[in-house]
Design a protein around this nucleic acid. Structure first.
Lengths: 232, 232
DNA sequence: CGTCATCTTGAAACGGCTCAATGCTCGTGG
DNA sequence: CCACGAGCATTGAGCCGTTTCAAGATGACG
């Protein structure tokens, strides 16, 4: 996104000092538990969710390499969400005081933290609009496009085909649908020639059309970083 | 929330230097328009929304006095959302470079900015879970509680009774429902003795029960600000 | 006093859910 | 190498919450 100075790179490296290997389905932080540690996700895929008291689950966000995990630890005594790995993962834990140091000493990194936070916020509003105002098929289409794009950001070789790690139940919990209906919608997308499935591997057959019916907007174009303060 | 030093107060005051009066239904920023100015909302109530291409609207957030408006101007060239006043408002416009200065010179204010941003993000995830996984009645209940609580933060005299500025169509656009169904649910809440209506004035008659059926969580308790860097 | 937005209510249609049964895949232990 | 079990995917039938469409009623405002 932007080139860091040597001093900035050193500051970031302090956050990635240690690293920990995690199996699939490992809970990093449990909703309502006290917490204080933050993480950088180095490898693998994870997600955050909340449970409602009727037992249903809403998946809030999927996490990919490079993402900062548990930033809400900065603000809340107890975690507002559960964070769990979806694949085997490598994470770098660090103390929140370290992040405070980085942000205090490096205004431009503080600004970049603001940027990623705002982008995450806009991603949430996009999903809010999807849940509030679009059909089941559109929501699933948007999810497919989003995950493909985020996988591609880490691995440029990914094209129309990618491994969707999620179960249909997880797709449902992310989009506010039941797994049964997710299944029907996936089949319908397939019948319409927009999608091809092979186990967990998905191939997008008509991306422009899918983007249109899903009301999908890629928020990575349109960034403006001209205002960033000078590096220190 | 926290006491500022004289130097910090002066820095904040620079943001609130100028002020502008706005009529009800004034668009501050239009979705997809280029923008660069930010605002502090001093008085009144506003909201942000997006329009989908079928013409439907999703209201993303309601804004109250003290809220920072258009922070996404920091990040995106074109606004991801429309911002419009719901009542007559007073706003203080300021240039984004000013915010950068404040954040660079005052690490603790930078941290506080992070806090309010994270709180806004968690509020969005709460609404996401509401839209994805709760009933119409629960969503409306949560909206009523949320707005009452935010009004009360500005005006301590507000108790169970408050003026809901919104039309039923706006309630629907915020909760992902139609205005017709909002009407039916409000009547149902009234019949169940949870709510009393008089024009735009609402009275919550059984707040604990409403909180429970709405799955509502007040995120203002549970904050942890112990990690803030020292004031400068 | 008329106009326009908003609220209200009914009837019918529809999208997505629930319940239930079956099939598939893959990892595990014998 | 096979049998088993557990989780996941698939499909059908019927139901229910919410939407759509339509028609008044109410109220604010020029």
């Amino acid at each position: 996104m932007i080139d860091l100075t040597a001093s900035e790179r050193a500051a970031v490296a302090r956050l990635e000092d240690r690293s920990r290997e995690l199996r699939r389905d490992t809970i990093l932080i449990r909703e309502d538990d006290p917490h204080g540690e933050l993480f950088v996700l180095q490898r693998g895929m994870a997600m955050t969710y909340v449970l409602l008291d009727d037992g249903s689950r809403q998946i809030l966000r999927f996490l990919f390499p490079g993402d900062l995990i548990a930033v809400s630890a900065l603000v809340y005594r107890n975690s507002p969400e559960t964070i769990v790995t979806l694949t085997d993962c490598t994470v770098s834990p660090f103390d929140r005081s370290l992040l405070v140091d980085v942000v205090t000493d490096h205004p431009r990194l503080a600004a970049l933290l603001m940027v990623v936070t705002q982008m995450a916020k806009v991603a949430l509003t996009d999903r809010l609009a999807a849940l509030g105002r679009t059909s089941a098929k559109a929501r699933i289409g948007a999810l497919l496009l989003d995950i493909r794009n985020r996988l591609r950001r880490a691995d440029k070789s990914i094209g129309e085909t990618f491994a969707l790690v999620l179960t249909q139940e997880e797709i449902g919990d992310a989009t506010g649908l039941t797994s049964v209906h997710v299944n029907r919608m996936l089949r319908q997308l397939e019948e319409e020639g927009l999608l091809q499935r092979d186990g967990g591997r998905m191939t997008l057959l008509n991306e422009p059309m899918l983007t249109r019916i899903a009301n999908y907007v890629d928020r990575w174009s349109g960034l403006d970083l001209s205002w960033l303060p000078p590096a220190r």
